[in-house]
């Protein structure tokens, strides 16, 4: 397989890999590194790629596992602040107003969700995969995906309602 053929296979979903990695690892730099790592892994196994039925789903599963490993090693090293684009709450009021506030809230709310829910939201609402694909990627069954998704969506809505009506953080 030449480099060009490989790129043709990988290009369509490399952004998706990146976004999933970013969803889990939060920091853009970490996500970039993870994506790079995953693409390189695929490249070094390029002979086997043709055997896989669904390279995209396979890569997403790989991304998930890779990010989990990353998070685990971070935890064992006792580094609690994983993200470098960590936001300080005491930034100037001016800046806070400037940020597109409510959209930012959504990102913060999703950040607080359990990992499983984060991934399902990412894969369904942002990447728009169908349930079967998500189930395959996350190694869950179809119903479990639906339940997780429904829980995540409800949590997001509830928290949004709270911040919207009372301004609670």
């Amino acid at each position: 397989m030449t480099q060009k053929e490989f790129l043709n296979i990988v290009m369509p979903f490399k952004d998706k890999v990146f976004r999933l990695a970013k969803r889990l690892l939060i920091s853009t730099e970490e996500a970039e590194d993870a994506t790079q790592e995953i693409l390189l892994k695929l490249w070094s196994n390029k002979e086997k790629i043709e055997e896989y039925k669904n390279v995209e789903a396979f890569s997403m599963t790989m991304t998930k596992n890779f990010c989990f490993d990353k998070l685990k090693s971070k935890q064992s090293q006792n580094l609690k602040i994983v993200h470098s684009n960590y936001e300080d709450n005491s930034t100037s009021l001016q800046k806070q107003v400037e940020l597109n506030d409510s959209v930012n809230w959504v990102s913060r709310i999703i950040e607080e969700l359990p990992e499983q829910q984060k991934m399902v939201i990412q894969l369904r609402d942002i990447e728009e995969y169908d349930f079967d694909e998500i189930a395959q990627m996350l190694d869950m069954n179809n119903t479990a995906v639906r339940v997780t998704l429904s829980r995540a969506r409800k949590t997001i809505r509830e928290k949004l309602t709270n911040t919207h009506s009372y301004g609670i953080k």
């Binding site: 890999v17 790079q36 942002i126 949004l160």
Partner: peptide
Amino acid sequence: IYKPMFAYFLVNQQEQFTK
């Protein structure tokens, strides 16, 4: 209240891996 949520999803769809 749903607006920011869907707006966020749309914005995130645009993000690309540039490295």
